[in-house]
Write a protein that binds this DNA or RNA. Structure first.
Ligand SMILES: [Mn+2]
Ligand SMILES: [Mn+2]
Ligand SMILES: [Zn+2]
Ligand SMILES: [Zn+2]
Lengths: 128, 128
DNA sequence: ATGATAGTGATAGTGATTATCATTCGATAT
DNA sequence: ATATCGAATGATAATCACTATCACTATCAT
């Protein structure tokens, strides 16, 4: 019952065409730049709908949600506290241990979020 | 230059006396119940100051920050998406793997946050 | 064509948190 | 003991990401 409208398709294309982690404002701004102006509420609803359908992925940072392509393998994120850059990593061993924890607790896992905060390579080098 | 005022001491005592993960409103409400009424802005500032000094720990949930005693060993959290309960777990092997990831990337870790979302034992049992 | 259903977009509202600012506190210097 | 000055307080306004409302529109099935 969720429709893939022209607006949602535009959002999806935008995200699929890049490797960035987008927030709602960035999506709206970039679309406007391309002459495709979509109401900000529609962007929020579109992002939520697309994520719900699994067409894009979402990650919840401290302040806001960001969205990215869904056609990558599952991964978690390294967030630079200095420049804000977001790197990705994949560590299946961690996921296994997470499942182990859940099993021990009789907890039914629906999802998880692992964020590593710190200084990226560049910022680490440029520290004074 | 950060002072441990009477208000902040009251907040700290409140948190140290329990095992809960408190948000600002809960702290303010409970203190008022005990006849210690502190402005909500002061509660926010107090919690931030105490966390900065390492006297309490903070975790960032999707919607709000929560604070807890700092005198427990490091741990991460299982968050029930149904009842909101928060359980704790400790899995040093995961932390080791995190450090490994960071090292591989030349990333200087300052902190991390691992949240497992799902149904707690009770909610899992009570599902219809 | 006719509804039913879902989406859109402008805008108001929400909820957590932070900023402002006049006032008060409290540790230190006199 | 008193003056002093930076930090804290608390009432309140502002911010910011997001959600709700609502009148209108697009799409699809009969
Ligand atoms: Mn990613
Ligand atoms: Mn905890
Ligand atoms: Zn960086
Ligand atoms: Zn539960």
């Amino acid at each position: 019952m969720q429709k893939l409208t022209a607006q949602r398709q535009a959002i999806l294309d935008m995200i699929n065409r890049s490797d960035k982690h987008w927030d709602a404002d960035e999506v709206a701004y970039k679309l406007k730049e391309q002459g495709i102006s979509i109401g900000i509420a529609t962007v929020y609803r579109g992002l939520a709908a697309l994520a719900e359908q699994g067409l894009i992925e979402s990650i919840q940072l401290a302040d806001k949600k960001r969205y990215e392509r869904a056609d990558k393998a599952h991964h978690d994120h390294l967030v630079c506290t200095s420049c804000g850059s977001i790197e990705e990593f994949c560590k299946p061993e961690i996921e296994v241990l997470q499942d182990q924890v859940a099993e021990e607790r009789d907890f039914h896992i629906q999802g998880h979020q692992l964020l590593l905060f710190g200084l990226c390579k560049a910022c680490k080098a440029g520290e004074r």
